[in-house]
Amino acid sequence: MSDTPSFTVAVCLSIGRHPVSGRPRMAPCDRQALEMAIASGHHVAAFHAGPGDEAVLRDYLGMGVGEISHLELGDGADILAALTEALAALDPALVLFGDVAEIGPSSGLLPYMVAKMLSRPILTSVTGFELRAGELAITQAAAGGRRRLRRGVPPAVLAVSRSAPAPRLSAYARARTGKIITHPATGETPAITMPELRPAKRQSARLRPGRNAEAATGRRLVEDVTAEDAAQEILEFLARAGFAKALPFADTQRAKNGNQNV
C-alpha cells in the first residue's frame, strides 16, 4: 500500500487484572498501544516479559498481531533487563508501552527506565503517531481533552495514553492461529521487594479547615433578561469560576459598564 519503507514498531504487552473480578485480562492501555502499532501499518513486534498467561496472550494475538515473543521470567523477577536486552537486539524504530500497568507498582516507570537503558528519548501521554520517511509526528494528550503536536525522529520510546483511540476487538480465529514464541530469560528478583500490602483505603480529599472562607459563586436564578444579557451573565459567571476562555469577554464588559455608569 504505502511506498515508504516499513519500520519496526515494538509493543510491550503486560497482563492486566480486572479491577472488580481480579481476573487476568489484557491491560486496557496496552491494548491501545497494540492498536496504535497495528493501525500504523508498520511491522509490529510484540513482547511480553514475565510469567505470562496463555489465555491473555492469545487475546492479544486475536487483535491481529501474528506472534508474541514471550520472555519467560519467574514471578516478581525484574523484567527491565530481559526487556531491554531483547529490544536492543531488535533495534526497532519505536517502542510502545501502555501508560500504566494494572499489576505491580503500576508506577508507569518501566517505559522511562527502558528508554534510559536504550538511550532513546521518551514521550508519554501519546494518543497517536505517524512515522514517515524517518520523521515522527506524535499527538499527545493535553489538559481539557486537547491534543498537542510534537515532532521528532526515530528511534524513540512512546507511552500510550488512556485517551488514545479505542482498541479493536480480539478475534477467536486469529487468537488460535497466532504464535507465542517463548524465550527463557534470566531476570534477577529485584532488590526492592514490596512491603506488606494491604487493601487500599478509599480516598477522599482532606478537609481544609479555615480555608475556603469566601463563597465564590452562589446559586443564582436569572429571569426576565434579554438574550444578550443572559449571554453576558454566562460569560461573567464562567470567568469568575476560572474558565480562561471567558476572561476577556467578562473584563471588557465590566470596564464598559463602568464607563457607562460614570
Partner: peptide
C-alpha cells in the same frame, strides 16, 4: 503508596 492499580497500599 497505592499499588496494583490503586487496589492495594503499603506504608514505609
Amino acid at each position: 503508596c497505592l499499588v496494583d492499580a490503586g487496589t492495594r497500599q503499603f506504608t514505609g
